[in-house]
Design a binder for these strands. Structure first.
Lengths: 215, 215
DNA sequence: AAATTTCTGTTGCATATGCAACAGGAGGTG
DNA sequence: CACCTCCTGTTGCATATGCAACAGAAATTT
């Protein structure tokens, strides 16, 4: 993906765009799966924008469990919390999932107004705002899923989101069942068992990642 | 709280501020506990800013359970997801918790640039951006807590966040134990039981809302 | 083609947790 | 004071769920 195409410059006309790209001193880097892109131990004045591939925001907790807090792909942003936050969280880092390329931009470049007070800066800030709002929505949805107490209710909550999004009762999970268990923070085998029960109870039909909701 | 004091106008000089306040056609309204401030069935072009009191973003799920997705107080924002999102979520509404006053601002007013392309609009968008980022951080933290599988681990995760924030191992919960159970999405009695076990195991000392972590 | 890893699927067992039900205390209100 | 509501605290019971362990299928790499 070219820098010209990232969401950050949506709505900026091409001459301004070219000027900003050179002015922003954007750094690009490629990563292989498993590589640590960035830890957030210190406060950093930069955000990452994903140009290709996918990245996970991961935390290792006290017991050594790996928790995926966010899953990011093309045109998503990470690090904005750390560029702005006063109190730095602990043990969170960005890890490459599928081989990826990331563009790093200094946050101060984004927020500052240039000498000419040009409109394009405003547009850029608005674009950032839109992406962060999208992220808020995704996180809220996940909380909604996790707030259900039983595995069954978590799955029903998530499945109905998907079927609503598709506009029909059947859909294909966008990831593996292992990952699904991670997403709903349940034990995989317990989840598999529950899916079978739900199928036995006539709530859903399923075959691997294909799910059909029967009310 | 006066409109002049809300975060939205931070960094805007007072003459511009006065001009914007009149130009934005902000509506203010007071609510009593339990009142529904706003449902989000239809897409609305406005965000709410809380001037005083507190507000919960609540969802009633299919089984009739009440889920608090976000807790908001002074200078927090709600509705920005719905002003921007394409697909409107279902059954979410904002409910007054402690008696409150809310200012409603049309989102288009915030994002649009006025004829003069004045700087203050940029500042306002930046301020919105900062608040939404703060919200993202809060939601991430909650996911981190909820991602723990056992009640014990959820509590330890949350408690260590608090003690870290306080800079010392003992702290006072900012809300009731009933509410704590809601926050970690666990049954209250089960949580109380677990707190006792943790105390028996020498992990914490506790008296009502006062918690002390012993490693 | 062979080797290796990841994904899907299943089972037994111990126990953590939800649920229902109850009770005393604190605080607020008429 | 009497009444009410909310918060804290506790217990018994049924069961949902985590954990460990295993195995074949599918995908990916060598």
């Amino acid at each position: 993906m070219k820098l010209e195409e990232i969401f950050l410059f949506d709505g900026v006309d091409s001459s301004d765009k070219a000027r900003m790209i050179s002015c922003f001193k954007i750094q690009r880097r490629k990563y292989k799966p498993g590589e640590i892109i960035c830890d957030f131990e210190e406060k950093r004045d930069r955000v990452g924008i994903i140009l290709s591939g996918s990245v996970s925001l991961v935390r290792i907790d006290a017991s050594g469990n790996r928790i995926v807090i966010e899953d990011l792909s093309e045109n998503d942003v990470f690090g904005e919390m750390f560029a702005l936050a006063d109190d730095a969280p602990h043990g969170i880092f960005a890890e490459c999932e599928k081989k990826c390329e990331v563009a790093f931009v200094a946050y101060s470049q984004i927020s500052k107004r240039c000498e000419n007070a040009c409109l394009c800066h405003t547009t850029v800030v608005e674009n950032m705002f839109r992406v962060v709002t999208k992220k808020t929505k995704r996180l809220s949805e996940r909380i909604e899923v996790l707030s259900n107490k039983s595995i069954r209710d978590k799955l029903l909550c998530l499945f109905s989101m998907y079927s609503q999004r598709e506009g029909k009762p059947s859909f294909e999970l966008p990831f593996s069942l292992s990952y699904l268990a991670e997403y709903i923070c349940a034990d995989r085998s317990a989840m598999m068992r529950e899916i079978k029960h739900m199928s036995d109870d006539g709530l859903i039909k399923n075959d691997k990642r294909r799910i059909e909701m029967l009310i």
